[in-house]
Computed example of a mutant assay.
Amino acid sequence: TLRASDGEQYSDQTVTIRINPINDAPRLDMTDIESIDLKLNRQKVINLNSRLTDVDTPQGNYYVASAFATGGTAVVISGDLRLQFDEVGLQTVSISTSDGYATNSYEITVNVFDALPFYVSTTDDGSGHMYVHMADTYETQTPIATFSLTDSAPSYNLISVTWSLCNELSGTCDGFWEYDLDMSRSSTGWTEEMNIPSSYGDGGYARINGMRNMDYIGLTVR
């Protein structure tokens, strides 16, 4: 009841408020999971219970009702979404949430890959996955390579590098050096003097007295 008064007289008015029992379906927080990358045949687990809310249903009475994936499997176990795919490419995971009466539907786009390209940059601008700088590259000098992972590089357990030393005039590659990087230095980077072993298996270096005219060094990362 509302009352209006001028200090002497007053008037009452009754206002009726009707509340309709509209049920809101549970909502799933899709932050950071709307689009994800996943390696082929590798399982990923996403906890959905921690992302699930319902404004008008007590906790424990709403849940992830179903999950379906193209090109692989999507299974919900105790609130955890377990994904695994056996087909490369963009795959879709469809998820529905329910409180027993109303439902909401969501989709996750999964980029399933077998191997991602590794990009090397000679410009220190944050592009690529690894920045490489080469010093002392004049004739008779032995170059020194300084290289490090960029901020855009994912985490790696193993990185193998292959250095080759070739000459444009002769058309031959006289040096070959392949090894695994010390991953304990992945946050600080690596420095190598380019004493590249000879390709001819004689136990020596490809260049004893430094670089020759028209020499060049190649790098392969895998």
Rank of each mutant, 00 (worst) to 15 (best):
A135H: 11
P21E: 14
D37G: 11
G204Q: 15
N209H: 08
D182W: 10
Y10F: 14
N213P: 01
F68N: 15
L158E: 15
G60E: 10
V110E: 00
L165H: 02
F176C: 01
I208R: 08
L116N: 13
T220D: 14
V221T: 07
R82E: 11
V112N: 08
K44R: 14
I46C: 05
S96Y: 00
P117I: 12
G72T: 09
W190I: 04
S170I: 09
D32S: 15
M30D: 09
I217Q: 02
A153T: 10
S198R: 03
T142D: 01
V110L: 07
S155Y: 13
Q91M: 15
D24M: 09
S184L: 04
D124A: 06
I217K: 00
P21I: 03
G89S: 11
L158R: 12
F85C: 02
G60I: 09
G128D: 11
S5W: 09
T162P: 00
S105F: 15
S186W: 02
W190F: 02
L48V: 00
L48C: 04
L90V: 14
V75S: 12
D56V: 03
E193A: 06
S94V: 12
T109K: 10
R185H: 14
M130I: 11
H129K: 09
N157F: 05
Y216I: 04
